[in-house]
Write a protein that binds this DNA or RNA. Structure first.
Lengths: 343, 343
DNA sequence: GTGAAAGCGCTAACAT
DNA sequence: ATGTTAGCGCTTTCAC
């Protein structure tokens, strides 16, 4: 069913039908109603390509997924982000254009999006410090919103981020308040912006109470269960092992839990663990971790906010950059408890 | 940069430039070479919408993600599937159109895809028995491939599936060979096709060795850690508890492991656990579960195969339906061991 | 081997 | 309030 046919059925011109369908005011209500009904009845939907050609919009938002590197990180978080953003998109008639590309081709993917005019805007995922994508997108004049921040030029683009620094500062303070002094940090890759901020929060809290920073108790790497396990094991084997762990993801925390129990330690008495995880949608257990429902997932919420901000930017261009800093409710205690009394 | 401008720069007609770019034979090689170079230099990419309008193709594959219900299941598996499919798509110049919709609107999403001509084909995810989407897509004449199967009319559409029945038959036999007789089954929702097949495999293996089926040892539900935990706990509390568990997902297995250790049982001596999980990309631990790298993830491979099959269907229409049944290497032992000697 | 012109399905000036 | 007409950027007959 095409507009022309619909117009013929209705005995109207294409123009009028188009106007009626698109909510233009200069159509009589009776006409609009009739048009709507007939369109519905014939399951009419405009050809997106033709509409896009004519309007210059494509009603699609681009998301580029670089494959191979850092896969572990992007994977679980990304699915939930998309779910949140997707809610907003679909409510506004937008679709998602996903481009899966090899790591090195990422910039090219944006260029292609741009020059083939297949999207109206993009979301930037997993920013590094001084991420080159930001200048690229600016130069291509593609509206974009960053999920996270890319170093310190925060005011030069729009972003939605969790207050990673504050979150880890609070987590560290919690453990300090419990009497812990040797607190280990299991962190993500330092090349990622969020990991750097988390470390800074941890360091600030430690130093504010005159606790020394022990490089041996601070690790940074891919946030896998294995690395969580290995590093916890190594740290617990030290002559003065940490009595608490501040962990950057659920996977690492599961690894840590395993190492702790293997070492014959008890959670909450010998060792405390506090976890920060942006994507809690997959958590559903009942014992040592609070239950979060999928709909409340922080990443999903970030997806919603990014999408809303982006659509707003697209619809009202020329605005100032906007920023949302979410205070996270994401510090989870895995059987936290007071520091053990030193022997 | 548009075709017209490019043509002017080159001193050729749009037609010739178009032909050169699209590999038509009637262009002189020298001309083609020159066209290609200039196009490259100016970073020319054809407007996808205009090209789509003119050719009738949109170079995009649709994936519909229903939100809310069964979220837990779709989520982790989906991300990896997309990664695999995305590889193939991008190699062939296709993009992914993601439509996130409320559960009930799913059929509508396909209709809209179809009548707005924004995609060339779709992949059907998470099929139920006699899934209505299949007839719908047929009636809409959208090329499609099903990831999984939808009941017993297997020859009426193309699909890529894992041999769930055989996989669970083998898993059960493994446990029977170890001497276990009371083997519990922690399964996914029976409304999902894969879960039904898994149960059938389990039942067949049990019955083939004259082992009775105990409904009390067979559960089916959402594959969450919590349900794995609760059911394992309940079953272990029976007067004659199971000595082995056959589990349908990693999440459930983690729950089971927790219940087992809480019950004071030892994995591999008191209880054995065998897990089947389609998406092992997030597994990276070292102790009781073998390491699978992301690239080897079975779901990712299924994504690749589905995508290849779909593109082939699109490019060579009118073929017979095709089917790929993957024998899985996905049975993982979590400290399996011989059945304990009865007291 | 190359070009002119029509057309893909829609929107948006510009009439009326 | 409705219709006519000219594009949007590309491909594709058809003519040379």
């Amino acid at each position: 069913m095409k507009l022309k046919e619909l117009a013929e059925i209705l005995g109207l011109s294409q123009t009028t039908v188009s106007r009626a369908l698109n909510g233009y005011p200069e159509v009589r209500e009776a006409t609009r109603k009739r048009v709507m009904e007939v369109a519905q009845a014939h399951n009419y939907n405009p050809d997106t390509r033709a509409k896009g050609l004519a309007t210059g919009r494509s009603m699609a938002i681009g998301h580029v997924i670089p494959l191979s590197t850092q896969h572990e990180m992007v994977n679980p978080v990304f699915a939930d982000f998309i779910a949140g953003a997707g809610e907003v998109y679909s409510r506004n008639g937008y679709d998602i254009m996903l481009s899966v590309v090899a790591d090195v081709d990422e910039e090219n993917a944006y260029r292609k999006f741009s020059s083939s005019r297949s999207i109206d805007g993009v979301i930037v995922h997993g920013p590094h410090a001084d991420d080159p994508r930001i200048e690229l997108l600016k130069s291509l004049k593609i509206p974009f919103v960053v999920h996270g921040r890319a170093g310190d030029n925060e005011d030069r683009y729009s972003w939605v981020d969790v207050n990673n620094r504050h979150s880890f500062l609070r987590g560290t303070e919690l453990l300090l308040d419990l009497g812990h002094r040797r607190i280990a940090l299991l962190n993500g890759l330092e090349s990622m912006d969020f990991a750097r901020r988390r470390r800074e929060g941890y360091e600030a809290a430690m130093l504010a109470r005159d606790n020394p920073l022990d490089p041996d108790l601070m690790m940074s790497g891919e946030m896998t269960e294995e690395l969580g396990y290995q590093n916890t094991k190594r740290m617990l084997a030290k002559s003065t092992p940490p009595t608490a762990f501040l962990v950057s993801s659920m996977s690492m925390a599961i690894g840590a839990r395993r190492a702790i129990s293997e070492a014959g330690k008890t959670l909450g008495r010998d060792v405390s663990v506090v976890i920060h995880d942006d994507d809690l949608s997959y958590l559903k257990n009942g014992s040592d971790i609070p239950i979060f429902t999928a709909a409340r997932s922080p990443v999903r919420q970030a997806g919603r906010l990014c999408a809303e901000m982006l659509l707003d930017t697209i619809h009202n261009p020329g605005q100032e950059y906007r920023h949302i800093l979410l205070e996270s409710e994401l510090m989870l205690g895995m059987s936290t408890g007071p520091a053990p009394v030193e022997g």
